[in-house]
Design a protein around this nucleic acid. Sequence first.
DNA 1: CTGTTAGCGCATTCAT
DNA 2: ATGAATGCGCTAACAG
Lengths: 349, 349
Amino acid sequence: MSGSRATLAQVAARAGVSVSTASLAFSGSGPVSAATRERVLAAAEQLRYAGPDPRGRSLRQGRSGIIAVVMEDRVLAAFRDPVRIAVLDGIAQETSAQGQGLLLLSDVGESADAIGTATMDAAILLAFSYRSDPTVELLRRRVVPLVALGGPDHGLLTISIDDEAASAAAAAHLAGLGHTDVAIVTLPLVNVDSPAARGPLTADAMRAASVTVSLTRLRGARSVFPAAAGWVSAASSVDEGMIAGQALLADPARRPTAVIAQSDLLAAGVIRAAHELGLSVPGELSVIGFDGIPLDRIIPQDLTTMVQPAAAEGRAAGRAVLDLLAGEHPRSTSFQCTFHPGATTARPA
Amino acid sequence: MSGSRATLAQVAARAGVSVSTASLAFSGSGPVSAATRERVLAAAEQLRYAGPDPRGRSLRQGRSGIIAVVMEDRVLAAFRDPVRIAVLDGIAQETSAQGQGLLLLSDVGESADAIGTATMDAAILLAFSYRSDPTVELLRRRVVPLVALGGPDHGLLTISIDDEAASAAAAAHLAGLGHTDVAIVTLPLVNVDSPAARGPLTADAMRAASVTVSLTRLRGARSVFPAAAGWVSAASSVDEGMIAGQALLADPARRPTAVIAQSDLLAAGVIRAAHELGLSVPGELSVIGFDGIPLDRIIPQDLTTMVQPAAAEGRAAGRAVLDLLAGEHPRSTSFQCTFHPGATTARPA
DNA sequence: CTGTTAGCGCATTCAT
DNA sequence: ATGAATGCGCTAACAG
């Protein structure tokens, strides 16, 4: 147990100075003679004092140096997504440069309790859905400065990408090649703790949907192909993409000439399924993805996709939080995706 | 800014009770009549009080509900490794069930400052090398209960796996098949912030090495093949494995009949390189990996590998930390890897 | 069941 | 350049 930590008062006593002087010696934010500073540090050394206790300091200053990152999934699910990792790394780049720590919080199950009780100076909401409205409300009450990274409009400062326009651009690319029979593979429409809802994209599924990103990208694609059939996957993974591919491509009679996947991992899975069915890509099937992650050659070709600047989004969110804490007024920002012409789309046969 | 939070004192005044009674009403840990509790909660509601401020509470209780996870890499590097993610998820399973938050800290660059100043009740050191001895010393001074997950012997409570024995078992498997000419592809020997040292495994490289896991696994393999040639990779990734594969397999005259890779991603890269060189696996080259992660069909075959129970390790570390905080005396634990016979090893041609 | 009292460890006035 | 005093917000003894 942490029973025996020395306190600043003890150090001060040892050094023969007042507590306030000792405090100044450590923070360096006031006039202290070099000699007394030496004496204080020597006393600290003798007592093995490791510096001011963060608890006392944060109560006094009203700052803890902790920025929370709140997700709707558990760690495993969240970090299996390469985009999330890149975003989190971007956040960490900015915040850790200022000596702030990242507190990982999950809005799922019992772990959600910590959101109400954990120390934090501010919070970044990572890819929230409508499901988490109560959490947003709780954090608002706690008067925690908030930044949303993606997610629906909670009236919060939001860092986002042009999901709808980018998806429309992806669809337009296929349309430009001459495709008219296109299917869409979506990311999950409901969250991980809901009953997994993999299956055909039906009106019912749409009504129950709560995940903003999936709906927004769907809207973009449908703006070009209003009648496109769809398949809802249960996660962003190669395996789910394969399942989707099997479902959409198995029947030669109802086989589309192109597939729009809402993530690169899903796209890779679809391409795999196509290969297993003996379909050549892009000869007999065009596939376009979304994200622009390194696919580590899961598929042989270079994937045609919309590249999102994940690390930049993370950095923007990190900077926004720091600005908020500095009393500034950062503004919501939307990043643009860029089209990456790979080798997995072509004119229909 | 968090300027305007209501305090417990204000709530108490509004409800016409003392502060301590109001405190009890919130914590539920004392005898309060239902009526007064109601009154307090109503007052809180009116003032939009969101519950006790964690800063005051943690100063008073000496507990913050925060467990730090300290890594030697930046987030991106750490979480590109599927094993790390699984471990972290295991930790989170245990700690978040107790309402504890995970504070992500990095022992790299300026971000390391936070290690000395961040609020934490305990810390888990994730895959530390000797490089971080000063960090361990600092945390010891701060009298923070510590648990090491892998890494060298710091005299700390340690959760580990039988790296050496498992590597020896992998090597023995190849020896049993009749291989005598075996090469080893190691994980990085130095940390990410050191000059990247990819290249042949030389005596110099060994001397400069600081990453325990790589050295331990190497020792295991060399216990069976003392003279095995080696290649040091700069990261655990498919790309690095391909580079290693090119280097080890390009020259037909000096080509081994089998490769021991220290991670599955490296193994997958080696297999890829073999395929590009026109070598069949396991016909002309046997490859064994380490980790047992889902490879998402990066390679066509089922990889022969040593499976480590990553999630279980994480959970054990999480439990150990919680036990420590509960005043108990958990013991160091070592997990065993299990051999997974895949389809990438066979008798030499 | 409720109120009173007393700090937790520290940074910051304001004197000197 | 240093010291004395004050309170950040809360919980835990103890008394009533």
